[in-house]
Design a protein around this nucleic acid. Structure first.
Lengths: 235, 235
DNA sequence: CGAGCCGTTGACGCGTATCAAGGAATGTGG
DNA sequence: CCACATTCCTTGATACGCGTCAACGGCTCG
């Protein structure tokens, strides 16, 4: 299940890393040939089935992750046991930045769909970022992006009526996509993202279907009427 | 109103920087005497009256800030004009990290109480952090802390009934404090923090007063019945 | 003293939670 | 291959919490 590759292979694109975040992020760009052989820690690739945890809150890990495809939810729990999804990670996102600081993971990370993951040791990143300013800047940008996401999650997805929240979530799912088609989550997960109950999530989606604001193309895949959803989202 | 000090004065503690975050953060610890004279950008100190903005969303600033005393709200707006407070900055917090990356400020920052601020150019921080790994680590930790705050804000303050949210907010205000006394915000700001209306915030606080869960010691300062508030918060 | 702001309280209606049940889809064991 | 269990989505009935609209009193400030 787990496939290991060396950093050199990754750089060469042999491990299907050509479109990987690390590569796009100029992680390797500033490195010379001689650097690769100094790094023996392997990069692991593996797949997660829906529902499988990648890591759990409180674990002190020494690995970071990139999402190659699929999606995961980052979950936090309240003392009463109820859960809240605070972010979603999708293709090219980086997970586990906190491990870079020696901190425990802050959330449970659980696959929502079949998901491909790359795992690499924090020590590799620490090492490379010391010598490579552009990687370092990229890491800071990642942190900032996560922060922006967190703020937007609060402002857009936890404010207003259930209709507005669901509409905003749907629009968010197709942003930066060529197609207006998107895969939907289970109703329970939708509720945990939006701070509403499973039933309300279901009712709202069912309502959107009846109003033809969304059309089910394939099972649980929907085409969005973006202009009208946007109108609802902003009312 | 604005008082300027040199970095050397700041380091020496002449500018009342002895308890300042920058100092505690070992910002200056790794620097030698000769470094100081290379830095001519002044550090400015000034005060904000309640309601005064420190910066606004969208501005591309080249300054960062530390809060010496008082508090500010970080505000984001929805398309419909309603606002949501996504974080609060208090003593020793750092504001404007995003300026370090050349990004625009992500929020409006507005003083909630009389507030003392230190302002310094990002270029000083950039310069110092290059040569000073401990400052660099500290900056990363700051980012991570902001992220944790953002997540907690969502999980604790935007989930559950109005009673629970208000109770959690109150408890949060006295955490890491010796006393169980705290200054309260205007009802409108409380609402914007918790995702509830001004009236509901007012009613809930008034209710807590009647139940003696909080006691008004001075105008708008309250002593908290922490155990019982905690019970409400976790129900 | 009047104007304005803010906190409080009341009445009412709507939106969502809650409890409950039925149906579709998927997987399991005989 | 077909009962059966399980899970998830959907829908209904009901209750309640909160939003909304409105009014009033205390406070500060010009």
């Amino acid at each position: 299940m787990v496939k290991s590759v060396t950093l050199r292979e990754a750089w060469a694109g042999e491990a299907d890393c050509r479109r990987c975040t690390l590569r796009e992020s100029v992680l390797f760009a500033g490195l010379g040939e001689q650097d690769f052989d100094r790094i023996h820690d392997p990069i692991d690739q593996f797949n997660l089935k829906p529902g499988t945890p990648l890591y759990q809150a409180g674990e002190v890990g020494d690995h970071m992750f990139t999402v190659r495809s699929g999606s995961l939810k980052l979950v936090q729990y309240l003392p009463d046991g109820s859960q809240r999804i605070v972010r979603i990670a999708r293709g090219t996102d980086v997970l586990g930045l906190e491990a870079l600081l020696g901190n425990a993971y802050q959330h449970d990370a659980v696959a929502l769909a079949p998901t491909e993951i790359c795992r690499f040791p924090t020590r590799v990143v620490k090492m490379l970022s010391k010598e490579n300013p552009s990687l370092h800047d990229e890491l800071l940008q990642r942190w900032q992006r996560a922060l922006n996401e967190a703020d937007a999650w609060l402002t857009e997805l936890s404010t207003g009526s259930a209709r507005q929240r669901v509409a905003r979530l749907l629009l968010r799912l197709v942003r930066d996509r060529e197609s207006s088609e998107c895969q939907l989550f289970g109703r329970e997960d939708m509720g945990a993202m939006l701070g509403i109950t499973t039933e309300t999530a279901s009712r709202t989606i069912a309502g959107f279907k009846r109003e033809s604001l969304i059309v089910e193309s394939r099972p649980n895949r929907f085409l969005l009427d973006i202009p009208n959803l946007r109108r609802i989202a902003e009312d």
